[in-house]
Design a protein around this nucleic acid. Structure first.
Lengths: 257, 257
DNA sequence: TGAATAGTGTCTTTAAGACAGTATATC
DNA sequence: GATATACTGTCTTAAAGACACTATTCA
């Protein structure tokens, strides 16, 4: 958790839960690249996962959605809780001190202010198409940007582990549930969804077996349209069968590769 | 979370994290029965999952282990985090009021005391052999007892959903990792471990295919001893290969039935 | 020798995985 | 017709699942 929220946290501290917050790993996919949205708060001067506090009036899922919205401007994103992180050293190692907050924001906080306590982070991840997103800094952030998961910058405390745990959870998740609705255009080609799976899984998948299994699930429907891709054969466009896709989100769809 | 902890919470409130606690679903197995350890706090007068607060000096896993120890007297139990629960209505529906606490404990707390806030519950589950356990009431509990998962009593707020979610997570977990070390004696028969799997999964498994797959994993070793079971053929005793078992906990062992 | 439980082998079906040749779009 | 990409079918191998008989213990 960081000062990522646009709320005037210092003035309305009572509006938030103490000792617990949300860290939301926002994954963005576009054109064979998987990225993570990171922010760099003034106070901490290191990159962090997007995070924030939980209002007393909202559920933890609403808090995660709220954080995702404040950084991406998008609503109704795919959100998934994966695990909680909590060790007493998180309080020390995250780098908050009254002095640094004073420097960065001008606020004077007592050393025993709850913001310096050990915080339990509820880890969520979010999926989006990153070309749709203009990363938006919070009031206390020096920067907010997409980073390739394969070349992460130096990260605060345990945030690298949080990202890696989120990626592992996502890879496990996509073996049992459909993904792609948030990551592809409404209509997409087989090579496009094939690349999506390869990129997130980080390995190549046999194209014939991939197409065979995907089509067997029935969650994609072939249209009669094609996409022009230059001096090559035009691939057919597919779309998701929304009924089967929603059902797959509930009951599961095996797509183990 | 409830008043389950033996600590004098009211006197040492500053020692604990606010707005976040642990709910630990303690599963007990014995002789083809799967049970859950529940407690009934004086204040709430309904059955609840075992739960407690997190000390500022301990990790969330340590807090869960600590809760399990205080109710079962056992250490080094298998502990698994599965998800967090957090909605503002948890505060209201869990049934804490200053009046009821006064009645039950004699302590007078202001209505705005943090204990009445919305709490995020970190859900864990624990596995143990219930014949080894003497359920131990906390200082604020009227009762603490094993309940069959198939006949749960009336439970506080969302605690039934928490138990069902824990069971679902356990069933998913056992398809990918070995279980049984905490639930069986050091040496056990094939029919015993077979019943264990059937009981937790809640359905019957073909005995021939079960034995075939289990032995193929190499995590069990057949001994030359047998168990006398009366007027029937004596089954052979098996034990876990501790090296392979530990390795299976890390890398996974497919035992999908 | 009858009753109850332990223990194991085979066959069928299905899924996974490896693999290569044809089709189409454009220049 | 050269090139780049789309698209699909078959064969092999492995795993899953259905199924039934023999072995042992003891009353």
């Amino acid at each position: 958790m960081n000062f990522s929220d646009d709320q005037t946290l210092f003035l309305h501290g009572d509006a938030y839960l103490r000792n617990v917050g949300v860290d939301n790993v926002i994954f963005g996919y576009h054109d064979k690249e998987l990225k993570v949205l990171l922010q760099r708060p003034f106070v901490l001067e290191k990159w962090t996962v997007t995070g924030g506090y939980i209002r007393k009036t909202e559920t933890i899922d609403e808090a995660a959605a709220h954080i995702a919205f404040s950084r991406t401007g998008l609503k109704n994103l795919f959100l998934q809780q994966f695990r909680a992180f909590g060790t007493p050293t998180r309080a020390v190692d995250k780098g908050f001190t009254p002095e640094r907050i004073k420097e960065a924001t001008g606020f004077e906080l007592p050393a025993n202010h709850w913001i310096f306590d050990y915080f339990v982070a509820l880890g969520f991840y979010t999926l989006t198409e990153f070309s749709k997103v203009t990363p938006t800094k919070g009031a206390y952030d020096a920067d907010c940007a997409w980073w390739p998961v394969s070349e992460l910058p130096s990260l605060l405390f345990d945030h690298r582990q949080i990202i890696l745990a989120a990626l592992e959870a996502l890879r496990l998740h996509m073996a049992h549930f459909p993904i792609g609705y948030e990551l592809l255009e409404e209509k997409f080609t087989l090579p496009e969804i094939h690349s999506l799976y390869e990129t997130i899984l980080g390995r190549s998948l046999d194209d014939r077996n991939f197409a065979k299994k995907l089509i067997a699930t029935g969650i994609v429907i072939k249209t009669k349209e094609t996409r022009r891709i230059g001096a090559h054969r035009s691939p057919f466009l597919y779309r998701f069968d929304t009924v089967k896709y929603q059902q797959g989100l509930k009951t599961g769809v095996e797509l183990v590769f």
